Amino acid sequence: MAFVRKLMIAAVATGIATVPGALILPGALSARTEATDLTIAQVAAVDQVSAYLSNITTLQGEFVQTAPDGNITQGQFFIEKPGRMRFEYAPPAQLQIVSDGRWVAVQDKKLKTTEKYPLITTPLKMILSDNVNLMRDAKILAVYPETELVTVSIEETTGEAPGTLTLMFDPVQNRLTRWTVTDVQGLDTTVALENTVAGQPIDPSKFRIIEHRILDVGGGNMR
């Protein structure tokens, strides 16, 4: 649980990062990267990823998370910009992560505990903002502008979870496919996004943080 609390699609990817196991909580991305440090192709690739993230209004789908020990969990995610996000793990996992635009809550449904972090203190503020600019807001370690897959690695050096966030973007389908968080010990947590749907309305209740209650795993209703 401690590792999960420290890491975050992106998020982005929200992605977005990325995510329960890919959530970075709390912390902020490090100093800006100068465009002159990158080739024209690399800058274009980073700008394409930034444009994709900026153009998201809503995004929902399924995710599959692979932990450093090889353990695989999965679930559903929902994003509505600006600032709102929800990751629900499928049973037997008992974790959900919700951002209501102001707070990010990590909730253990079994233990009925809620841990809250101000959204503005996490890198989620960038991924979930209306205007995403990785060149402006992140320190970019590496960019691989391949035809079928663009890979952008961002360094995270502050807060409780220093490490590297690597975004993988399909430029042909114009979608974020997965991200990997590497911590200071070199351990990787990867989140793959599947069956994503953009631009569709999402029930506002998905982004409400209700403390001291848990979801009914069977029916999905509050109890």
Score class of each variant (00 low, 15 high):
A2W: 10
R5V: 15
R5A: 15
A10Y: 04
V12L: 14
T14H: 07
T14N: 11
V19W: 08
G21P: 03
P26V: 13
G27D: 03
A28T: 10
L29Y: 05
E34D: 14
E34M: 09
I40M: 13
A41M: 03
V43C: 09
A44Q: 01
V49P: 00
L59R: 04
Q60V: 11
G61R: 02
I72H: 01
I79V: 13
R84V: 09
R86F: 00
Y89M: 15
A90K: 00
Q94H: 12
A105H: 02
K109F: 11
K110H: 10
L111N: 09
T113I: 05
T113D: 02
T114I: 12
E115G: 04
P118M: 08
I120K: 04
T122V: 01
I127M: 14
L128H: 00
D137L: 06
V143A: 09
E146K: 05
T147Q: 12
I154A: 08
I154R: 00
E155K: 02
E155T: 04
T158V: 07
T158L: 01
L167Q: 09
L167R: 04
F169R: 06
Q173V: 13
Q173T: 14
L176E: 03
T177W: 00
T182R: 01
T189Q: 05
E194R: 09
E194Q: 14
N195F: 13
G199K: 03
P204C: 05
K206L: 07
L215S: 00
D216M: 02
V217W: 10
N221M: 14
R223N: 10
